[in-house]
Design a protein around this nucleic acid. Structure first.
Lengths: 196, 196
DNA sequence: GTCTATATTACGATAGAC
DNA sequence: GTCTATCGTAATATAGAC
């Protein structure tokens, strides 16, 4: 609990504060006044660090997307059987989601009212499609149950993964990201894999 | 595609329009001007039918909650083994969610900025707790895998169920609510039940 | 039941002093 | 780098005519 520095803000440290408020009130429900109060500086001071409210959103979402897309380039995501790559990506996605929780939370809640939001939704769709491809491959390999619709399974899998942002709060509850990832894998893949 | 009546609005028919816009832009991202344009009447005319924006939210959320809580009183939810009641509630929750899609969607997205939103979140927590009780009972009966954490399982189950609002669009795709409910049950309970 | 016009407040962003 | 003061706009809601 090192409160540490609060001399002056960097875009990075201001971003951390802003993202917390965005997630609590929603992006549209957050005014510059709210951010100002939370950061402990005046509205106009915020404009010294960032161009405006939408830039804070863009910075936060970029961070989330960078973390997620990096998973797709890991060795475990590009080598081996599709079903094993799928498991790796699922596990690591949960871990990144929990490590970058506030940023990914914001990404998942974007509605598409501004250009930045629409860009975020598009990039997120790209990520989902990459994972859907893995599911399709695994199904073609005969490693997934034949009676499971791939499109539907992808959606339910992401539903489970993404729902973590709704309840996980670091520091309390005691579950680690690894444990949550294992639970998601057990729950999802028991119903998907052909052999236990 | 019967466009039907558009002579004059009732609170009910106006609500249907408003909820669509709320879900597309987010509640906070929707102005009375947006609603006015979507409904094809002026801003001030809306105030003739409802007290204001927040009342539209309250009406919509009430409808969602009424549908969900009704499930808990159905025969299948109060008779029999806990694990079977759990399956019934899961299946019916998915069905109600899909039948009342826009209203439940709105319920699941409220952030808590107004009194109405906080009330909605509280009622929703009540519902979740009722289902969590069923999971606990089923675990005590020995009908759920011993190595599954009940709290975590509840959350993942709701994650899967609630994620349906993110992609299901009636009329296209072709899946029925019954099919989706079955897929959720198969996916979730294959990883939860002690015996297939 | 719907409209135009308007009151009032809140919002994002800028100007300019220190 | 932070502040106070302020601009211009958009928000919720009301008044009163038809």
């Amino acid at each position: 609990m090192t409160m540490a520095k609060r001399d002056t803000y960097t875009p990075e440290s201001l971003l951390a504060v802003a993202v917390e408020v965005f997630n609590e009130r929603g992006y549209d429900g957050t005014s510059m006044e709210h951010l100002s109060k939370a950061a402990g500086i005046s509205k106009s001071s915020i404009y010294h660090h960032v161009k405006g409210k939408e830039e804070l959103l863009r910075l936060a979402i970029s961070r989330a997307l960078d973390g997620l897309f990096a998973v797709l380039d890991e060795p475990g995501a590009v080598e081996g059987r599709a079903v094993d790559r799928l498991e790796h990506v699922t596990r690591r996605t949960v871990e990144v989601l929990m490590a970058e929780l506030p940023y990914v939370t914001l990404l998942l809640r974007v509605r598409g009212n501004t250009g930045t939001e629409r860009w975020a939704m598009e990039r997120r769709r790209d990520f989902d499609h990459r994972v859907a491809e893995l599911l399709k491959e695994a199904a073609a390999d005969g490693d997934l149950r034949a009676d499971v619709d791939v499109r539907l399974a992808t959606r339910l899998l992401f539903g489970m993964i993404n729902s973590v942002v709704e309840w996980y709060r670091p520091g309390r509850g005691g579950v680690t990201s690894g444990e949550v990832a294992e639970a998601v894998l057990r729950t999802a893949f028991a119903g998907l894999r052909t052999s236990g």
